[in-house]
């Protein structure tokens, strides 16, 4: 298992487009990937799940992956979040 915590930096937080970007990335990996925020855990391959976390700007999320490509999976999503989903 591999995990990392990141802060959401983009102004709008995780809205529909960023959420679908996460799903697209997560779906490329074989590992089980989940995202945790304030004690709630959702599947990173689910838009609905990610939206329900209601991640605003400044909130912290933990990305957890378990499987053969766990490290790459987590780093790939962290990279997306750090770059504000390439939208600002």
């Amino acid at each position: 298992m591999y995990k990392k915590t990141v802060e959401i930096k983009n102004t709008l937080g995780i809205h529909a487009r960023p959420a679908s970007e996460i799903v697209k990335r997560a779906s490329k990996f074989k590992s089980n990937i989940s995202i945790e925020k304030d004690g709630m855990e959702v599947n990173a391959k689910s838009i609905m799940g990610i939206l329900m976390l209601a991640c605003e700007q400044g909130s912290k999320i933990t990305i957890v992956a378990d499987g053969e490509d766990e490290k790459e999976a987590v780093e790939s999503i962290v990279e997306l979040v750090d770059n504000k989903f390439y939208e600002e």
Partner: peptide, 12 residues
């Protein structure tokens, strides 16, 4: 298109 994505959503 968003609806199509939601339809396949594993959570659903």
């Amino acid at each position: 298109e968003v609806q199509l994505l939601l339809l396949k959503d594993p959570f659903f």
